[in-house]
C-alpha cells in the first residue's frame, strides 16, 4: 500500500506536467490551424488604377503574401446588367482594378493599419479597405483565449514542479541512508542512484501511458460529441502518435533531473 502511494506521489505531478505539455502541443496545433484558417479567409481589398503584382506589393510590405486580382468583367457586368454592350465597354475602360491582398500571418489591427497606410501611399492606388471592426473583434477574442490557456498551462507547471520537488524530498529521505552507506563502500554515483532511477523510470512510463490513454479517450469520445465544429473537424490534432515520444522523452528528462538532484544532495561532503 505504502509503495503504491509512493509511486502515485511522483506519477501524479509527472502526469500533470505531461498533460500541460500535451495541451501545449494540441493547443499549438489547433491555434495555428485556426489562425491559418482566419488568415486565409481574410483579405485586404485594394482598388487601384494600375495593375498590381505580387512581387511589387511584397516589396512594399513583406507581410503581404499574395495578390489576387478580382475579375473586372464580373464587376462591370453586375453594374451594367440590362444595359447595352457599349455601356459595358465604356465602364470597363474607366473601371479600376480590384485586388484581394492576402497576408502571411494573422496580424493585429495595428499591423493592418500600417500596411493600409503604406498601400495608400502607392501611386495609383485609389482605396484600401481592411474591414477593421470585424477583424479586430475576432482577433482580440483569439488572442484572449490563447493567453488564458497559456496562463493555465503555466499554473499547471508551477504546481507540478512544486509537487515534484516535494517528491524529491521524500526520495531523499527514503534513499539517503542507503546511498551514503553505499558511498562509504565505494559505490560510484551511477550505482548509488541506480535503484532510485529504476523506480522513477517505471513511474515515467506509467505516467506517459496514462496520459496517452486520457488523450486518446478525449480524442475518440469527446470530440465526436462536441458541438464545436472546429474540434470535430480537426480531431487528428488532438493526439498525434509523435506526441507519445515527446511526452516520454520529457518524462525521462524530468526523472533524470530529479534523480540527479537527489544524488547530488545526498553526496558525502568530507568533514573537517
Amino acid at each position: 500500500m505504502k509503495s503504491i502511494k509512493d509511486h502515485l506521489m511522483f506519477i501524479l505531478p509527472l502526469m500533470a506536467m505531461l498533460i500541460g505539455i500535451e495541451f501545449i502541443l494540441v493547443f499549438n496545433r489547433i491555434t495555428s490551424s485556426y489562425e491559418n484558417k482566419l488568415k486565409n479567409e481574410y483579405a485586404i481589398l485594394v482598388v487601384s488604377q494600375k495593375n498590381l503584382t505580387t512581387p511589387y506589393l511584397r516589396s512594399i510590405d513583406d507581410n503581404i503574401d499574395s495578390v489576387e486580382a478580382m475579375n473586372r468583367e464580373d464587376i462591370a457586368k453586375e453594374v451594367t446588367s440590362g444595359m447595352q454592350d457599349a455601356a459595358l465597354a465604356a465602364i470597363m475602360k474607366d473601371l479600376p482594378y480590384f485586388y484581394r491582398v492576402h497576408l502571411t500571418s494573422y496580424m493585429s489591427l495595428e499591423g493592418l493599419k500600417k500596411i493600409s497606410a503604406e498601400l495608400k501611399k502607392v501611386n495609383g492606388i485609389l482605396n484600401v479597405e481592411i474591414f477593421g471592426e470585424n477583424y479586430h473583434s475576432k482577433h482580440t477574442i483569439f488572442r484572449l483565449v490563447k493567453m488564458l490557456l497559456n496562463i493555465f498551462i503555466v499554473m499547471l507547471f508551477i504546481v507540478s514542479i512544486m509537487l515534484v520537488i516535494k517528491q524529491m524530498q521524500v526520495w531523499q529521505l527514503a534513499h539517503k541512508d542507503r546511498m551514503k552507506i553505499m558511498e562509504i563502500f565505494g559505490a560510484p554515483m551511477m550505482l548509488r542512484s541506480g535503484i532510485l532511477f529504476k523506480v522513477a523510470i517505471i513511474d515515467a512510463i506509467i505516467a506517459t501511458i496514462l496520459n496517452m490513454v486520457i488523450f486518446l479517450f478525449i480524442k475518440s469520445k469527446w470530440s465526436q460529441n462536441s458541438d464545436i465544429d472546429f474540434v470535430k473537424n480537426n480531431q487528428d490534432m488532438l493526439f498525434n502518435v509523435s506526441d507519445f515520444f515527446i511526452l516520454f522523452v520529457t518524462a525521462i528528462v524530468i526523472v533524470a533531473i530529479s534523480v540527479f538532484v537527489v544524488a547530488i544532495n545526498t553526496r558525502e561532503v568530507p568533514e573537517g
Partner: peptide, 28 residues
C-alpha cells in the same frame, strides 16, 4: 571510491541498509 572498494569497514553504529535483507547487506 576505488580505495574504499578495497577496504572493509565495521562501524560502531553498524550502518546496515534497512531495506535490504541480511544476505544482501553482507554482499554489498
Amino acid at each position: 571510491l576505488q580505495l574504499r572498494r578495497n577496504i572493509g569497514i565495521v562501524f560502531q553504529d553498524y550502518k546496515l541498509i534497512n531495506e535490504w535483507t541480511v544476505e544482501k547487506n553482507v554482499v554489498l
